[in-house]
Design a protein around this nucleic acid. Structure first.
Lengths: 346, 346
DNA sequence: TTTGCAATTGCAAACGCTTGCAAAAATAAC
DNA sequence: GTTATTTTTGCAAGCGTTTGCAATTGCAAA
């Protein structure tokens, strides 16, 4: 008796709904899954019964039985970067429109862990995977491909052309940013690289170089300092740049974080921004408009990239035959207060 | 034939491992779950077979059959706040030590959605839930309690004493911060409130008030401006404060974000920080050390709070009988560059 | 050698849901 | 009113694991 009570009070299953609405559980399942050949009146009855009982489908069972897990995974290096947060925000936003939930995997601790994650994910833990991991190791990318498991790369290209991915116009963005600096009158423009193992890092450097050439400016290798997309790297790179016998009048950092580091180094040298030296970033993370002076930067539509990635992934999930494709979003210059014409060229 | 090939190539199940190692699948299951009464040699054999086949347990099946889902859910308002990111980072870090994965639920879009999330989660989607949602609606908190579902609140207390939670010494932190300002010589200290619907918001205001009283300073209500824990709110609140016939010489914002807004407003007034006016924050998010001048703030161990929350949750999951308890972590003043003695009191 | 236990292992029944196939009901055509 | 169709439904067989219970095995005591 007691036991019966207890059981009754526990979560209702599809069978309870079936009993309540007087149909078989298969029918309930069909209604719940939007199967079309169900008599409207029956559908209605089932829906009401479900509502009345407060029925919530058990995802685990659903996916075990061959349905979807309604989960999509996202593999990121870590959360310590506003850049990633922005992307995730876009993903979340888009996902909210569907009924998928997000399962988050970070690789920050265990670097060998990615492949184990991927194995688990492909094993049904999720219906699709979003990868924001720089330096995706080919081994598991291959695994994903082989199993024809739906996935989309974010902000990283796959030269084999076999992966779908979203990214931004890194080359063009860097080109435009540099050109803007040139138009402002700068002749000696320092550049802080990103991680050169990433396409985005390489492309931005190339864009910078191209703009310099097209602008009739020489490319001084000493003006190109190595960074790593992090604040610290931007800081030390800038120190080197400022120590040059003829330091640059403007510094273009491969991303905002580096730019923040650059600003710090510049201030520490007793120089003013932008009066003494201009600083240009890339990304336009929220902090860019909080720092002082507000950072002029090349906006990369991170949030939108996340959204687009989800749409692409959902498309792949819906149609496994869909050939891989790419989407490249435009970057856009956001002029704020950290750049101005060089004070004086001597 | 072809079909057989295809099937073979698909993910191995526990049965394949059983066949490979020559034992029954129940034994395999036991080995995999660390059941102790298994002959060591058998265990070894099974483990090797699993390794050889590249076996990966199917979480869905595992949890359906009554085991754990190895997923813990986290409910947050959104990702647009470094504050949340810090907490999640701590959670992630701690979770990495166990073999749990994180499933992320945001309430940013659908506000009625929380309860449906909670229903799904309790329905087996996760083994436990972490709540970082300000203003937790009691309805689903009740549901969690009733079902005795493991959960822990982060940075929010539950006055009923029936929930476990982690938080920081908000009152004390605000008290200390204010006292620091007083010791610096400030007599008119402005305060920007947070959301007063949150305990943290209320506690910080109280701490500020208490420090003022204890310092023998009057509490001027016009020096208390309403904010909302966001940059924008801090900005407008500060404008009001600066418009006062006798503006404050220091402003203590309820959190860093508000402080950033305050800094912006101050600069826009042509005033300097900290020469003309000091600014104190609360939280110590990463940006605090990036802005200029670097923000002096009350450090709240967000990352650690996330870690502790996970430990607590895991404890509740492991022992459903465990009574709810609370952990309060200490805040700590981080002196940087945004505060100094008032220039001159006229 | 037996006998008695404890240590191991296997069987089978769930877990809650999806789905192919077949039966039943409803509708159309004759 | 029948028969041929077309809709709708129900049945049953899984999906990959866990686990209670029973059967088997191993080993020490008798």
């Amino acid at each position: 008796m007691m036991q019966d009570q207890a059981r009754k009070s526990s979560t209702p299953t599809i069978i309870d709904v079936a009993r309540e609405s007087g149909v078989s559980y298969s029918t309930v399942s069909r209604v719940l899954n939007g199967y079309e050949f169900v008599k409207p009146t029956t559908r209605e009855r089932v829906l009401q019964a479900a509502e009345k009982l407060g029925y919530v489908p058990n995802q685990q069972a659903r996916s075990l039985a061959g349905g979807r897990s309604n989960l999509i995974g996202i593999l990121v290096p870590g959360l310590d970067n506003a850049y990633i947060s922005e992307i995730i925000r876009g993903i979340d936003e888009e996902l909210a429109k569907s009924d998928y939930s997000l399962i988050l995997y970070t690789t920050r601790r265990h670097h060998g862990r990615e492949s184990s994650y991927v194995a688990t994910i492909m094993n049904g833990a999720a219906d699709g995977l979003l990868l924001v991991v720089p330096l995706v190791s080919p081994n598991y990318l291959d695994a994903l491909r082989e199993q024809n498991f739906p996935y989309v790369l974010i902000d990283q290209s796959d030269t084999t052309g076999k992966s779908s991915f979203v990214n931004a116009t890194n080359w063009q963005g860097a080109y435009d940013a540099t050109q803007y600096l040139i138009k402002l009158g700068h002749q000696r423009i320092g550049f802080i690289t990103g991680l050169m193992g990433l396409n985005s890092g390489v492309d931005r450097l190339e864009g910078y170089r191209a703009a310099l050439s097209d602008g009739g400016l020489p490319i001084h290798s000493e003006l190109i300092a190595e960074g790593d997309f992090w604040e610290r790297g931007g800081y030390t790179a800038t120190q080197k740049l400022l120590d040059l016998p003829q330091p640059p009048t403007a510094i273009f950092a491969s991303n905002d974080l580096s730019a923040f580091g650059a600003m710090e180094a510049i201030r520490q040298c007793g120089l003013r921004i932008p009066e003494d030296i201009s600083v240009m970033g890339f990304d336009n993370v929220p902090q860019a408009s909080i720092v002082h002076p507000k950072l002029t930067t090349m906006h990369q539509p991170l949030e939108q990239m996340g959204q687009v990635a989800v749409k692409m992934l959902l498309e792949h999930i819906g149609n496994p035959e869909r050939a891989p494709y790419r989407v490249t979003l435009a970057t856009q210059l956001v002029v704020r207060d950290s750049c101005q014409p060089p004070y004086h060229e001597l």
